[in-house]
Structure formats: C-alpha cells, structure tokens
C-alpha cells in the first residue's frame, strides 16, 4: 500500500492521423486527427496538460512521454 504509481518515462498518449490508423493500437489513449495542423495542435496541448513532452517517431505518429 501507499506505493506511488509513477508514469515517468512511459507513453501517456499516442496521436496520429486517421490514415495511419493501422500503425497504432494498444492500451494507451490514442488520438486520431484529420491533418497535420490538428496533429501539431493536439499533441502540443496534450503535452502541456500532462506536463510531458512530444516525441516524433518519424512515421507520422507522435507520442507523449513524461520524463
């Protein structure tokens, strides 16, 4: 009891365009967006809200990790 659960260095959210739907799945919140602008906007907001950081996997998928 009382042991703090830490989400440091684990993936908090995954953001990608709808066309990349095949590339993502799993137990993490996944946000599907329409275009590049929305991708940028959503990932930035999620990073601010979770106090985390946006990483770009280079294949159109962005993830949020708190370090």
């Amino acid at each position: 009891m009382g042991e703090e659960v830490s989400n440091i260095n684990s993936i908090l959210a995954v953001i990608t365009a709808k066309k990349n739907k095949e590339k993502v799945s799993g137990g993490v919140p996944i946000f599907l967006v329409d275009d590049e602008d929305e991708l940028e906007q959503v990932s930035m907001l999620l990073a601010r809200l979770t106090l985390g950081m946006v990483h770009d996997l280079g294949n159109g998928v962005k993830i949020i990790i708190k370090h």
Binding site: E40, S43, M44, A47, M53, V54, H55, D56, G58, I63
Partner: peptide, 17 residues
C-alpha cells in the same frame, strides 16, 4: 529531422514544431 544533438550524438527528439 526531429532529432537534435551534437555531431553524431543524438540527444533529444523534439516532436513539437
């Protein structure tokens, strides 16, 4: 690309424009 560093050493991946 989105990776930044010094010389060949990649130090950080910045996904936010």
């Amino acid at each position: 690309g989105k990776n930044i560093g010094i010389d060949d050493v990649i130090m950080m991946n910045v996904g936010e424009k």
